[in-house]
Amino acid sequence: MPSDEILRLLRERILHFAASRLSREAAEDVTQETMLLLHEKYPHVAETSELLPLAFQVVRFKMAGQVRKSVRRGESRSIPVEDLPLPSAGDDPERAASRAEMRSRLLAAIQELGERCREIFRLKLEGRNFEEIRAHFAVESINTIYTWDSRCRKSLLEKMGGRWEVQP
């Protein structure tokens, strides 16, 4: 797939997703800022398998910034993209608090899962892929593992309130 076609599709997906969570204008801003950042700072990332995860992270941070900006009432002017660089992997107090909260919610939700779901989740955390998990459960088809894992994921998501992270 050509690079331009990939970027077009990616922009469409980002805008659609952001619009589902933010206002239309904010979604367009987030999409524009994300695409601009990918184009300017990550032009070497062309593979879909790498570009999409990178886009996911950028969009997430851009949306978080957008939310913070909307919370700050009284500030009408938008923040330039240059003022919102990608956060480092270091300890950000806000992110750390958010991560700690999500960790506690995850721990509580996992305790309510069934035995098989807990086992699948444990194996995945140990780095086992689906083929190894199939061998572990000694099932014939890997699609069975896919189905089990999808159900367990939905069950876990339900126990966490339908969303992985807490909305601000």
């Binding site: 699948i120 989740f121 995945k124 955390l125 780095g127 086992r128 892929n129 689906f130 699609n143 896919y146 189905t147 894992d149 999808s150 367990c152 994921r153």
Partner: peptide, 10 residues
């Protein structure tokens, strides 16, 4: 169905 493996990186 592969969504579950994405978050865990497996």
């Amino acid at each position: 169905l592969l969504l579950g493996g994405y978050a865990t990186g497996t």
